[in-house]
Design a binder for these strands. Structure first.
Lengths: 231, 231
DNA sequence: GTTGCCTTTTAACCAATTTTAACCGAGAAT
DNA sequence: ATTCTCGGTTAAAATTGGTTAAAAGGCAAC
């Protein structure tokens, strides 16, 4: 699955670099901007899942930037970084739709945990709702809300796990679906036994997909699976 | 619009009372429990939108309680209150799916802002439409106040439990209705025997809904049921 | 109160889904 | 080539859900 993409706007080059390296190490895609002006420009020319904004910055402070962001995006989660815990700041920040507030110095670990808690409630859930529930590939028509895979006149009822796994594969059609990502999204835990369980379901899906030999699930050894059209 | 309902579990009677009064003043419905045992019992016999749990408590600490809660509800937001910012605690808490973490002493205002930020993102908010009493799906017209399900010219009288269950399913049309939520709302207790009773009623409803084969109750294994149009 | 009817719960049994386990084969690394 | 890890397949065990029928509970008419 795709990585979450984070916009980091922080004028302290040192902290910015640390944030960036740590979060990339943890599997996020990041873009670091050194001030609010660049941050604003970057936000409007790319798509992000979450913004981390320092409040005190030269040229354009974090709140002003947040206001600009909110004009074009009312939804995107925003996390503010602040030097000292100023009460008015906090209040103003939450009024702007902030999702969290970290007072420097904070631990990278805590930041990471808070980001996860926020993202868990946003992107993943929206994608389920966002209409990407029907897929067409080869002779198949797959309706994930109804848990049905149609092929020609045939109607195959999918079990819950079959359905979820095929949905993830379909969302990433042609791209690789990472084992670990799938496990975390469907089994909520990347462990040995769940991994073996997933392999069983890959086998089951392959059996269903035999109905059109142009559609296959390829193995990317050591990394994951890929649903492809073979034409 | 209905109020958000908060479960507060806090052994310090003083703080508990303050929390309670402040949050009720701010428009929330609250239930205050003095220890983890009572908290657990309360959670399993009522439906809440968010839990505020103190970590250090006699009888049953906040983490143990959170683990119990997570068994039957993977979604509900949990906010922990902690005396001192202990790093390991924080990590364990977030692992349990915590949404936030407040270190005592905190300001009521900050708590409120953080609660709002979390509730803004919670999905499955059927509160907005919970006043609805009439539903139309497929050939059916369902009047929950009259406990009548019409199909074509036919008029099916529903029993109380049939009616309540179909109403919950209808409110969540197309979305999953969590087993545990349904049990708590209709049977007021999420227990083994009530769960079996609910299965019996799912069977009864499926029998009624056979009159239009486009309307079905799908099973989401291990989680709940989903009323869907199959067009 | 007792009777009869209707609703709900309990129980027993059966069916489906998911997990665990065992075994085998393909690929990578040495 | 040999060893080791990783993935594939199949079957069994475990868990969870579905159906049916009988028991229990509730309520109104008598």
């Amino acid at each position: 699955m795709e990585k979450y993409k984070l916009l980091i706007v922080e004028d302290d080059a040192n902290l910015g670099q640390v944030l960036r390296e740590y979060l990339e190490l943890k599997g996020y895609e990041t873009v670091l901007c050194a001030d609010g002006d660049i941050g604003s420009k970057t936000f409007h020319s790319d798509v992000f899942d979450l913004c981390i904004l320092d409040i005190m910055m030269p040229k354009k402070d974090g709140f002003t930037l947040a206001r600009e962001i909110r004009v074009s995006d009312k939804q995107i989660p925003i996390v503010f970084l602040t030097a000292k815990s100023m009460k008015e700041d906090t209040i103003e920040g939450f009024r702007l739709g902030a999702d969290d507030f970290l007072t420097k110095p904070f631990s990278m670990e805590e930041l990471l945990l808070r980001l996860k808690a926020i993202l868990r409630r946003t992107v993943g859930n929206e994608k389920i709702k966002s209409g990407e529930t029907e897929f067409q590939f080869g002779n198949f028509h797959f309706e994930s809300t109804k848990q049905i895979l149609r092929c020609g006149g045939e109607e195959i009822k999918l079990t819950t796990k079959e359905n979820e796994l095929l949905r993830l594969l379909s969302l990433n059609m042609g791209q690789m679906l990472d084992r670990s990502t799938a496990l975390k999204k469907i089994w909520h835990d990347d462990s040995y036994f769940n991994a073996r369980s997933m392999d069983v379901y890959i086998t089951k899906l392959r059996k269903h997909l035999k109905r059109d030999k142009n559609i296959q699930i390829l193995t990317v050894h050591g990394h994951g699976f890929k649903l492809v059209k073979m034409d």
